[in-house]
């Protein structure tokens, strides 16, 4: 459903991505792993339209994305959870979720989606009138994911959802991701927590210095020698 082909991209004079190609199929859970500064976040920014490629193409459900403004891409069904969640701290949990359903497509089903999100994350329902700024790190991440789900994504992009969370919370978040995927949402997961990501994903890409250097099923990459030595110690 999503296809990147030979994407180059960067900021000003600094090129970050060099010919990145990757694919996410319908209902798939794909991980993108690699060291810091390899270009993982940049890849997500390209897909969600926050950054435009200087070469190559991005297609989603057969449509070209490279010229679409970011807000239109959300409307098409690609929704990104940015690193750190970036919830709207000055607003209540519920307002955050409402904003998630901003697009016309999502707004129609706002009430049902919100029920679903509250089912997935009962903690958010308990705190629905609390300001998002008062939430703990784990709760913020849940809110960020919940907010993205409110947009009725076909493809969910997750940027380091485990970052800065306690191990027990990481496990919870990863379970939620698996659950969301089981319910039919395709997921592209960027993670530094490589082992957990590879265990979770059906397929994975390894990115280094802005280039895709490996691809395979999660299990295969887990046993792959260079990946083991580089990331799993």
């Amino acid at each position: 459903m999503l296809e990147l082909e030979g994407v180059n991209a960067g900021y000003k004079d600094l090129q970050v991505l060099w010919g990145v190609s990757l694919r996410v199929g319908e209902g798939e859970l794909v991980a993108l792993v690699g060291p810091n500064g390899a270009g993982k976040t940049t890849t997500l920014r390209i897909i969600s339209g926050l950054l435009k490629p200087t070469a190559g193409s991005v297609r989603f459900l057969g449509r070209q994305l490279d010229k679409e403004p970011a807000h239109r891409i959300v409307e098409m069904g690609i929704v990104q959870v940015p690193e750190g969640g970036r919830v709207f701290t000055g607003m209540s949990v519920q307002e955050n979720l409402e904003l998630g359903a901003f697009t016309a497509r999502a707004r129609k089903e706002k009430e049902q989606t919100m029920k679903w999100v509250y089912q997935l994350f009962p903690r958010l329902e308990e705190r629905r009138h609390q300001r998002a700024g008062t939430l703990s790190g784990g709760e913020r991440q849940m809110l960020a994911i919940g907010r993205a789900l409110m947009a009725k994504p076909r493809l969910l992009l997750l940027d380091e959802p485990s970052f800065g969370l306690a191990p027990i919370l990481v496990e919870q978040i990863f379970e939620m991701i698996a659950e969301i995927n089981r319910q039919g949402v395709a997921v592209l997961l960027v993670e530094q927590n490589v082992r957990a990501a590879l265990e979770l994903a059906q397929r994975a890409y390894v990115i280094e210095n802005g280039r895709i250097v490996g691809e395979g099923s999660g299990d295969a990459l887990l046993s792959f020698e260079s990946v083991r030595s580089a990331y799993l110690g």
Binding site: D13, L50, T54
Partner: peptide, 9 residues
């Protein structure tokens, strides 16, 4: 000149 990406970069 190097093309500067458009959009909200």
């Amino acid at each position: 000149p190097t093309a500067c990406a458009g959009g909200n970069n």
